[in-house]
Amino acid sequence: MWETTVDGRVLHFHLAGINNQNFIMRDEETGSWWQQVTGEAIFGPLKGKHLKPVFWDELTFGTWKHEQPQARVLRPDEQVAASGKYAPADWEERMLRVPVATRTSAPALNKRELVVGINVNGAASAYPITALQKQNPIIDKLGGTPVIVVMSEDGQSVRAFERRVEGQEREFFLKPNSSPLRLIDDRGTEWDFAGTALSGDIAGRQLPRIAALKDYWFDWKTYNPNTTVYTLGDR
């Protein structure tokens, strides 16, 4: 997800092709080609320019609606919906059967395995969803920064944060049987899934967010060739 203003000009994007199963976009204004996943212009007059990333979450509608009851949602196009062209509800399971045609070196996971990818100070790491399902939250250190990756009680929404408060590293645990999900840190402060402190003298404090991309392993690996993979029992 990207801001579309480049050098003071708003660009309008179209699909122009496929690069290893990731879209290439073409802007109407200059005809440059952009890689969707990196936001970088790869050919054309704007080659080398980067779109500014917009921070976004991939959540279940239920979790999001609970946090943002007044917000707006993209509506289906009536013609497309009428012709039944939108993906069926089970499209994610169907995607697992679509063949993968990129060249990734020495796969550590199945190509279509779902991972949560995060990038901190140039260091990339992939957290398999299956690992998060067994161990939630995942406490890790990436590029020298202490991080936490947490999955909501819906089993699908995932967020990542820096786990530092006023420069002090904190450990986090899942509060047992909490719904909505609550975390407790090693000083007894309670936190919600949005990373906001709910108790103690730091109530209302927000943990710094880290962009977490839910992605297929092969796609994450293609655009983050030096990524590590988190395996259970690392710590």
Binding site: D57, T60, F61
Partner: peptide, 23 residues
């Protein structure tokens, strides 16, 4: 593109995934 308020979005189930932004 057109939009509806979250409360009126009958076409999305609570378990469906969404991409969410806040600016």
């Amino acid at each position: 593109s057109s939009y509806v308020k979250a409360a009126d979005a009958g076409f999305v189930r609570d378990s469906d995934m969404v991409l969410a932004v806040k600016i």
